[in-house]
């Protein structure tokens, strides 16, 4: 596998626009992916030769303890970082290490939605402006943006709070804003990093319900990082990481994105 790990690779072809053609086949392919931080004796192998495929429409929990490599996995899957070795392919686009930084940004904008543990909303912007931000980077006109923001907020039940600022909302409401922001561009995959980590059980459960709904009704693949076995159990497939290696790949019927759904 080629050694990668920088953004200086050749400019890749324009990533395909989101749409029906991507609802078939693999959402995410890791081929012999390793990620090493540092050099020499102080080098840390965050991921070690990982091979896996996540199908379109799957609801996958990425489970493991702290330092197991699950967040590194999410960063590589979201083209936020590049592998040291191996290749990451998202929805059939050229491997991420061959994309220019601008093309990687466009890939994230059009096909991937991110949800973070600490919500990561822009404090000085209203709820609607927060949700609108990815659409601005997509270059959409004002009328289209307004419509899509309304639809996304309606999906998480926050239409009424569109003019509020994040500080005026509860933690659960802020995370629902983050969910709306993640899905507003109509992505093919949502990557969620401990999305319920800062919430109580009931509120966290409601967020998981929203993600389930998105997965079922919109056919969006969901990869959810968690260290909570209770949350992992609700996913259709659990990928367990230990010391940077893929230690388990368990499929469950009846759960979110499972084979029976």
């Amino acid at each position: 596998m080629p050694a990668t790990g920088s953004w200086s690779g050749a400019v890749a072809a324009e990533p395909s626009s989101p749409g029906a053609s991507h609802r078939q086949g693999a959402a995410l392919v890791f081929s012999g992916v390793s990620k090493i931080y540092g050099q020499g004796a102080s080098a840390v192998h965050a991921l070690d030769n990982v091979d896996l495929t996540i199908a379109r429409g799957e609801f996958v929990a990425i489970y493991g303890r702290s330092g197991s490599g699950k967040s590194t996995f999410l960063n590589l899957a979201g083209a936020l970082d590049l592998p040291t070795a191996g290749a990451v392919t998202v929805f059939g686009a050229p491997p991420t290490h061959t994309l220019s930084r601008a093309d990687a940004a466009r890939l994230r904008n059009r096909q991937i939605g991110f949800i973070f543990q600490q919500y990561n909303l822009f404090a000085r912007f209203t709820v609607a402006e927060n949700v609108e931000t990815p659409l601005v980077y997509a270059g959409l006109g004002a009328a289209d943006r307004s419509r899509k923001v309304r639809e996304a907020l309606a999906l998480v039940g926050l239409e009424e709070l569109a003019a509020r600022r994040p500080a005026e909302l509860s933690g659960g409401q802020q995370q629902r804003v983050a969910v709306a922001r993640a899905i507003v561009t109509g992505p093919d995959m949502v990557l969620a990093d401990e999305p319920t980590g800062a919430l109580d059980d009931d509120t966290g459960g409601a967020i998981l319900d929203h993600l389930q709904s998105i997965n079922r009704t919109l056919g969006v693949s969901v990869a959810l990082v968690t260290h909570d076995p209770g949350i992992a159990e609700r996913a259709g497939r659990v990928l367990t990481f230990r010391n940077g290696r893929l230690d388990g790949d368990e499929r469950r019927s009846g759960a979110y994105g499972g084979e029976s759904t």
Partner: peptide, 13 residues
């Protein structure tokens, strides 16, 4: 800056 990049801001943005 990191968050904006995640949401699709290109280096030019």
């Amino acid at each position: 800056i990191g968050l904006r990049s995640a949401l699709g801001a290109t280096p030019s943005d």
